[in-house]
């Protein structure tokens, strides 16, 4: 386990060095993935609530599709967004291929089904419990959906974190639409892929240790906040 040991030493040395290039990569990773989470949350939660509370033809098929899309391969999403944003593609005019914006779009698409599907499940479970009470108080389906979004906020936080974890960990989509350009679109995962292909496995693993630590810290912070809030609100 010599190389594992070396990887942790590398990670520690990297963090200690405070290398500005590394800091930029870490910050870009966080910016891209958090932006994607924000967009996917804003779109995904209402979709999840609508499917959770609504009754319409094709609803069950839609749930199956949504659940299946949770397993979207990042490379496929990357390719799709690449073809859309390429100069030869329908949105080529925007000229945002190989920019962080393109990476945000790809990751948003990737994690939207995860957030929507997990939200749908949480909202639907809550709807079973709340339905009679809310209808009795005079709430329509739309206002009930918003009430449930708020009341299931602790479960929804888990959905959002799942989306963030997926976004922060994926490499296939950002590699294709970002191009892994040094100083412009290089993020943690593409840097890891690059160092792996250069054969510098300890450095790659060291970067991996930093990435995992970051995700861990964010999750721990979110979990503790959630627990404290849950203890207060029951």
């Amino acid at each position: 386990m010599n190389s594992l040991h070396e990887a942790f030493a590398q990670a520690a040395a990297l963090v200690a060095s405070g290398d500005p290039a590394l800091v930029d990569i870490v910050l870009l990773s966080l910016r891209v993935s958090l932006s994607a989470v924000c967009i996917a949350t804003l779109i995904g939660l209402p979709i999840g609530a609508a499917i959770g509370v609504g009754r319409f033809p094709g609803r069950r098929a839609l749930i199956v599709v949504l659940n299946a899309l949770m397993g979207l391969p990042p490379v496929v999403v990357g390719l799709l967004v690449y073809l859309l944003l390429s100069r030869a593609g329908p949105l080529g005019e925007l000229g945002i291929l190989f920019t962080p914006a393109a990476m945000v779009i790809a990751q948003s698409i990737l994690i939207l089904p995860i957030i929507a599907a997990l939200a749908r499940q949480a909202i639907e479970d809550a709807w079973t419990e709340y339905q009679e009470q809310l209808r009795s108080l005079g709430a329509g389906r739309l206002s009930a959906a918003f009430t449930l979004l708020r009341d299931t906020r602790f479960s929804l936080l888990t959905a959002v974190l799942a989306g963030f974890g997926r976004a922060a960990a994926e490499v296939g989509a950002v590699m294709i639409v970002g191009g892994n350009i040094d100083g412009v679109t290089r993020v943690m995962t593409t840097a890891i892929a690059l160092e792996t292909s250069k054969g510098d496995l300890p450095l790659a693993l060291g970067l991996g240790v930093i990435l995992i630590s970051l995700v861990l810290i964010l999750n721990a912070a979110a979990y503790l906040t959630k627990e404290a809030a849950q203890r207060r609100y029951g």
């Binding site: 989470v37 936080l157 959002v160």
Partner: peptide
């Protein structure tokens, strides 16, 4: 919690 999280995400975006 959610609102705070969203605010942070917005800033990051």
């Amino acid at each position: 919690v959610i609102r705070r999280f969203l605010a942070a995400a917005f800033g990051a975006a």
